[in-house]
Amino acid sequence: MYETIYHRPTSLADAAALFAKAGDATYLAGGHTLIPVMKQRLAAPSDVIDLGRIKDLIGIEVTGDALIIKAATTYYDITQSAEAKRAIPAIVHLTTVLGDPAVRYRGTIGGSLANNDPAADYPAAVLALDATITTNTREIKAADFFQGLMSTALQPGEIITAVSFPIPAKAAYSKMRHPASRFALTAVFVAKTKSGEVRVAATGASSSGVMRVPAIEQALTANWSASALDGITVSSDGLMEDIHGSAAYRANLIKVMAQRAVADAG
């Protein structure tokens, strides 16, 4: 790892000010992506600004029709949240199949979203539930936030402060985990909003990151059941192909994971 200067601000304003002052700063949340990347010398920020101790960024609440998870809330705290379990159990389930226990103590929802790994879990929930991402300067809709592989609408220095998930009528997440990395080989989040709209998002599949699956959304809009997807073929165009699976394999996994998720959602 190259030399760097570590900062631990206690307020959002201090964090943003440190970023503006530094030459080439980066924000640190749980650090379980950033630190490995720095160790490999693929990133060499002049300054690392730790967001993990900013109290305003930690917490979970239900307001009206939304579950709001503040950005520096750890995966572990999400798995322990009775409010999250009551509001959107699928998000708690997603969190329990993410990483391993030691990783879940450190990782944060905001860190995962800002990184936008193409096989990360939370982007699927955010896109399927049409969540709103709040930053220190504005609100960003899910559809505008994800902009391809490891790329988001965040501007330099902008900090995610919270994610607001509208509470759906039904939702579930089904994941084929890579047994070593525990990332999604392909995973699907299905949701039916309270107004009846069906939204389906797949992660781990597309080479440009999280994606919606219109063919599955249409079939489930007509008939919300696993068997409604029996005759569906998901196109393998643009899907990832690597040593773990071909694009066609991932296309089929999207369908199978969607079927399992619908069955789980009831």
Binding site: Y6, R8, L28, G31, I35, P36, D50, G52, V103, R106
Partner: peptide
Amino acid sequence: KSCTVLVGQ
């Protein structure tokens, strides 16, 4: 995992 924690944290 202490290999993925900076001392400052």
